[in-house]
Structure formats: C-alpha cells, structure tokens
Design a binder for these strands. Sequence first.
DNA 1: ATAGCAGTTGATAATAATTATTATTTAGGA
DNA 2: TCCTAAATAATAATTATTATCAACTGCTAT
Lengths: 140, 140
Amino acid sequence: MTGLLNKLSARGYKITPQRRIILQVLSDSDKHLSAEEIADKVKQIEPGISVATVYRNLNLLAEIGILSRLNLHEGPARYELNQGHNHHLVCLGCGNAIKLGVCPMQGEIKKIIEESGFEVDSHHFEITGYCQKCQARQKL
Amino acid sequence: MTGLLNKLSARGYKITPQRRIILQVLSDSDKHLSAEEIADKVKQIEPGISVATVYRNLNLLAEIGILSRLNLHEGPARYELNQGHNHHLVCLGCGNAIKLGVCPMQGEIKKIIEESGFEVDSHHFEITGYCQKCQARQKL
DNA sequence: ATAGCAGTTGATAATAATTATTATTTAGGA
DNA sequence: TCCTAAATAATAATTATTATCAACTGCTAT
C-alpha cells in the first residue's frame, strides 16, 4: 500500500486523499471490481468523491502499471491491483477471479507467433464460467 | 454465402435484403470490422439501411453462430464471419486479424482448469501487436 | 396469386460506460 | 507560508449499443 503511493509520487503524481481511498478499496478487495463498484465503495468512505475522479485515476493507475484493466466479454471493464502478470478464471456468478498460474504465451504458441513475424504488443487470455461455489448455488 | 442464407431460413429467420447486404459486406472483408464500419459499407450499397438494423442483425448472426464478435481490449466490438473456433493476432496498425492456428485451451492449461473445478463457459485469447507490413511501415 | 401474420425494419429515444470541460481547490516544493 | 502545476467535483458530452414502436414485408397456407 505504501509502496503503491511511493510509485505515484516517484513519477511526480500527487498523493491525494481520493487516490489513497481508491487504492484502499482496491487492495481491500480480492475481486475484479468494475469502475462503478469501485466508485460506490469509495463513496461509502468519502461521499464527496466524484465518479469522474475514480475513472480518471483508474486510467492513470492502469497506465503506470499499478493496476490492470480486464475487458471482459460483456459488461464494463474490471480492475485489480497488478500483482505481476496473470490470467484468471472469472466467475460469471460472483465476479470472483481465480488466478491461473500459467500463461499461454509460451511453448508452441509463442513459437508460432514468433515465426509469423508478428510483433506482440500485449495479450489477453480470459476464461469465464462458474466457480465451484456458484455451481453448487445453481443446483439449489 | 448461399449457405449462410440457408442457415438463416432454416431457423425461421427471413432473408431480407438488409441481411443479404450485411452478409455480403462481411464476406467481402478479411478484416475484423466494427459495427460502425459495417454500417458504413452497408450504406454505400443501400443508403436507407438503419444502423439499428445492422446492430440487430450482427447480434442475431452472432447468436446463431454465423459470425463471431471479438471484444478487443479497446474500442468497439469487431465482427467476422465465423470460420470455426479461432484466435487471432490483431494488428493495431491496420486492423487485420491473422488467424492463429492454435488454441490455448488444451494440454497443461486445460488440465489445470479442469482440476480447479471451474466450469468453463467461454474463453478469449487475444494477441495485439503489429503485423509485418505495419512494422515495415513504421520504419519509413 | 393473395391474404395474413410473425418477423423485420427505420427512426429515434434511451441507456450504459466513459471521457471532456471547466471553474475551483489543493499537494508539495521553493 | 506562498505559489503553481496538478487534481478535483460537477456536469456536459461522447461513444457504443439497445429498446421502443409504428409501419412494412417475406413467407406460408390457402
């Protein structure tokens, strides 16, 4: 948490109470939150904070790599603190994101892409479905 | 092309001139087109066609599997005629999508997911970057 | 052929998610 | 403490898409 704030000021960005709260909310959650969900939680702590501020800072934080934006197949984008490179199993029931320990950009796939001469900028691997808890819940 | 039309009528959907034109546009392009781009091309052929009709039909066609919607990391969704399950190298320069012959949902990754008890609904693997042509263009 | 009707369309309003604008405020260095 | 660039709140604007609804049209059965 302090590390995150340092990252901000190291780049010349100011540490504002709004940014503290946004980061607070993000680090308190283990889910992928949408901008709206983040804004709601932020407002529970400090009602005066504007949605625009939340969006602005989510963009900034994503840009400097503090968090990452996940564009799901449907619905709004979701955000999480960036804990290194990761892919996730995203549950459509509860929104929870289970870390997948592996990345498809390796082995055969990596080789094929390299051989094609394509210059990779970024990649996304997203699996949606239902976690065990939500599978059980559906059967009730 | 005729096959696509048959697929429509087989399911009880009508073959309208609008749908013919939309499918025409899609089969004439090898790129992933956005709804707006599709609508533009459609209007070049028949100016009276409404954007709403384009969206409505893109949804329908995607639903019945004639085409697939690709939610890129940024910008609007893009569509292409569905030629089986595929992943792509999407060029940020020219928008072209190069088919990647492989799918990451196999082997080790598939096993890990199965063992986690997660029930997969869908998956997306998207690689963005620059194709060889656009790399060359950038160096000019 | 043609009548009928479900399916479809065009026009447009509405919505959802996000970004831009702008006047005001503030964090952090001099 | 003062100053200034950066940041904020409020809100308008934008972008992408979906909903609404009256009018129209493929298709099927007569």
